[in-house]
Design a protein around this nucleic acid. Structure first.
Length: 766
DNA sequence: GGGTTGCCCGTTTTT
DNA sequence: CGGGCAACCC
């Protein structure tokens, strides 16, 4: 896949139109509504397009690009269009091609990172790199940081390398160079450690002629700041800049854009503050909230006409998101005023997570039996752990499903290994690739041999690969390493003439790498070999290793192959940008959603982001949204009692229906605050909190953590007699009265007239 | 150098 | 409960 065009094309003569052509004749403008059209035609000066879910933002972006080109405001290569994901970039390119043909391929269209790479490859030496610098993946980054920490005698058990790396990455997101990290950020022990190692990590990257993802944004900024002539080149070039998903940009991206837009000021950012769900990886909602402050002459256009969902779904989503404080404000309106309101959002509770999953599975199965396609439906969860329950339920029900996310093709061990072989063939200096494969398959190269090699490499200032020849090695290790080196060299020679898949096949077979998996008996081994075969297929599309590596470094998903009729299960985060006829939103429980950690660590802001996540989830649905929650959930092997999410309470009553006889969920909230709820701490024992007896703080202090319930003896079971005559509520049977109590076993006469024996833990006080 | 055990930790994830 | 990983042992 090409990320974007490298060449500036010869201006096409065939596409010429007279500059004074009446814009009304652009046929691609006709399907636009007035606001969308305004966003397209307002080409000059900074523009913020607040584009709610399902309001046609991609259409606006592509049409705007086409409009600028067709109106001859700029050549295609004078337009910069940036997205976050390759998927979005590809989609945009495809749509643009449909509108204006091959001129689409001359637009600078790609992800932020891809644009960064392109600029850096050209001016690498100005930031101390050579143009064949390597791009580290997450794995490499962690390994590198781990190495540096260990070298400096840091106990990586005490200081998790990933945590340190995360801090460093957040600094990079803010475009802080090591020396720019403020003293305030360094006050904590972890902060000062991260500060120390940020500098070390950078210099090690430099030594390796490598960059990480953060550098792809950070280094262009450095480049531009220290080379005004280079900046001027790009500033002059990009007459129009378009940015997708602006709410997800971080400070570095904001700065980069600001630098690039300084000359022409034609920057159009499209985004939705209500869909900002990535603050935890550095996204700065403030970029969009303060757009008008940063660009005082900015125009703002709101797209509020939603073409996706029913009025009830939009009503529910709007009502929910209105509980957020930090927003620019915008209300989604159904595009078709007279259209039916559709179904209300269904809210349904279950005893436990298993039942929840099973109910959803049977619903989906019966819908499928009615002839509906599975791909019309999605199950969205907050956390990936939840997917487990659905896997079981769908397998039981015989529903073909696909879990999106999680295991990514390029993150699989065998693919990373194969790619490392290719990296090493491409570039002997890629020490990380060398380390990855030098002893894979096992060649008897142990720590001692490696130490000898790296000592030689340091001394001679050469790569590990080249150091092998000089290192003091003897016996079999000498022999196998020499063989390894010559294998890579002959693969390199082969690569000059052979097709890419052949080269790959050659090196993986000759090295014994494939045989390593073939001889392994584990159940995954077959799959690994299949994955490598799949990699050969991908390789067919590339002319040389360099192109492929560039692609593989910046791309992580090959998920788009789901042509079969499959049900998809994914996290709410992964669902952004997608739409489905029916959407099941599972696990709407306090502590899971909103997630406890989000609130604990980010407070009110964390809660608002969780709410935005809920909003994203709801607005994925075109026809039906079904929200479910479980009263008991097994977390880390323990049964934990859960309350319906406060987000359920926040849904406007007019737009939801419940089937449990419960009119309002609001009654649960005081219970939550007073800790008057049932807490099940293991499979057999139930404790009851008396009203007011346990404050939330106490609860957490005693239990230390929601996930590690308090020991049994801390909470005495309440005297059973007092339960007699109590009004209770049961998720399935509704309201009733306790008529007999025997320990935890209660007889309840439900309002329907039925009398049932129910365990106390399945009831709540009404 | 390789296999086993025991301990820790547990949200979201793109490039 | 279960995955990952480092320490430990052969």
């Amino acid at each position: 896949m090409d990320v974007f065009e490298l060449e500036e094309p010869i201006p096409s003569e065939t596409n010429r139109q007279s500059p004074d052509q009446n814009v009304e004749t652009f046929s691609f403008l006709t399907p636009l509504n007035p606001e969308q059209r305004m966003a397209v035609e307002h080409t000059e000066g900074p523009l913020l397009v607040l584009s709610g879910a399902g309001t046609g933002k991609t259409r606006v972006l592509t049409t705007r690009t086409a409009y600028i080109i067709e109106k001859h405001l700029a050549k295609p290569y004078q337009i910069l269009a940036v997205t976050f994901t390759n998927k979005a970039a590809n989609e945009m390119k495809l749509r643009l091609e449909q509108m204006i043909g091959s001129a689409a391929f001359s637009v600078w269209l790609g992800t932020f990172h891809a644009i960064g790479v392109k600029i850096l490859r050209k001016y690498a030496e100005k930031v101390g790199l050579t143009s064949d610098f390597a791009i580290l993946n997450t794995d490499d980054q962690v390994r590198l940081m781990k190495n540096i920490l260990t070298e400096q005698g840091i106990d990586i058990k005490k200081y998790n390398p990933e945590t340190i790396l995360e801090i460093v990455e957040r600094w990079k997101d803010k475009a802080f160079l090591p020396q720019e990290v403020s003293a305030r950020e360094r006050t904590t022990q972890l902060g000062s450690l991260a500060y120390d190692f940020y500098a070390r990590y950078q210099s090690r990257l430099h030594l390796l002629n490598a960059v990480d993802f953060g550098d792809l944004l950070l280094l262009p900024i450095v480049l531009f700041r220290s080379n005004p002539d280079v900046l001027e080149e790009y500033q002059s070039k990009f007459r129009y800049i378009l940015v997708d998903e602006y709410q997800d940009t971080n400070v570095a991206q904001y700065l980069l854009l600001r630098l690039l837009a300084q000359k022409w000021h034609n920057i159009c950012c499209v985004g939705d503050d209500d869909q900002s769900i990535y603050s935890w990886r550095g996204a700065e909602v403030d970029n969009i909230l303060s757009f008008q402050k940063f660009y005082p002459d900015a125009a703002v256009i709101r797209l509020e006409k939603n073409y996706r969902s029913t009025a009830h779904i939009l009503g529910a989503a709007s009502g929910l998101i209105s509980h957020n404080e930090a927003r620019l404000g915008k209300t989604l309106k159904p595009a078709h005023e007279k259209a039916e309101k559709g179904y209300k959002v269904l809210v349904k509770g279950f005893w436990n997570g298993m039942q929840e999953a099973e109910w959803i599975a049977t619903q989906i199965e019966s819908s499928r039996k009615r002839g509906n396609s599975l791909s019309e439906t999605a199950v969205l969860v907050r956390a990936t752990v939840q997917t487990r329950l659905f896997e079981d339920a769908f397998r039981k029900e015989g529903i073909p499903y696909k879990i999106i996310g999680g295991f990514k093709f390029y993150e699989r061990e065998e693919i990373k290994d194969a790619v490392a072989y290719l990296r090493l063939i491409l570039n002997s200096n890629d020490d990380l690739a060398f380390l990855r494969v030098v002893n894979k398959p096992k060649r008897g190269v142990g720590t001692k041999a490696l130490e000898a090699i790296s000592a030689t490499a340091r001394e001679k200032k050469i790569s590990l690969f080249d150091a092998v020849a000089w290192a003091p090695l003897k016996g079999t290790v000498r022999q196998t390493l020499d063989d390894f080196i010559s294998l890579i060299k002959s693969a390199r020679q082969k690569a000059e003439t052979a097709l890419l898949p052949e080269t790959a096949r050659f090196v993986l077979e000759e090295s014994g790498y494939l045989r390593m998996w073939e001889s392994e008996k584990s159940p995954e081994a077959d799959g690994r070999i299949e994955n490598i075969e799949e990699l050969y297929n991908v390789l067919h599309e590339y002319e040389n290793i360099r192109d492929f590596i560039e692609y593989a470094s910046l791309v992580t998903d090959t998920d788009d192959v789901a042509d079969e009729d499959q049900l998809v299960v994914m996290t709410l985060h992964a669902s952004k940008g997608l739409e489905f006829q029916n959407v099941y939103l599972a696990g709407w429980e306090e502590e899971l959603f909103p997630h406890k950690k989000a609130i604990d660590e980010q407070g009110a802001e964390g809660l608002e982001e969780e709410r935005r996540l809920a909003y994203v989830g709801l607005t994925r649905a075109k026809d039906r949204a079904i929200i479910t929650y479980a009263n008991n959930r097994k977390i880390y092997g323990h049964w934990v009692n859960a309350l319906p999410s406060r987000f359920i309470d926040e849904l406007p009553r007019d737009h939801i229906e419940t089937d449990s006889g419960r009119k309002s969920f609001a009654s649960l909230q005081p219970a939550w605050q007073n800790k008057q709820f049932y807490f099940k701490n293991n499979d057999d024992e139930t404790s009851i909190f008396d009203k007011g007896q346990w404050k939330r703080e106490n609860f957490h202090k005693e239990s230390d953590d929601f996930y590690n319930p308090p020991s049994v003896k801390v909470y005495q079971t309440k005297e059973t007699g007092s339960r007699l005559g109590k009004r209770v509520h049961h998720e399935i049977f509704g309201f009733g009265t306790v008529i007999h109590a025997e320990g935890e076993r209660l007889d309840v006469r439900f309002d329907s007239g039925e009398i049932k024996k129910i365990m106390a833990r399945f009831l709540e006080e009404a």
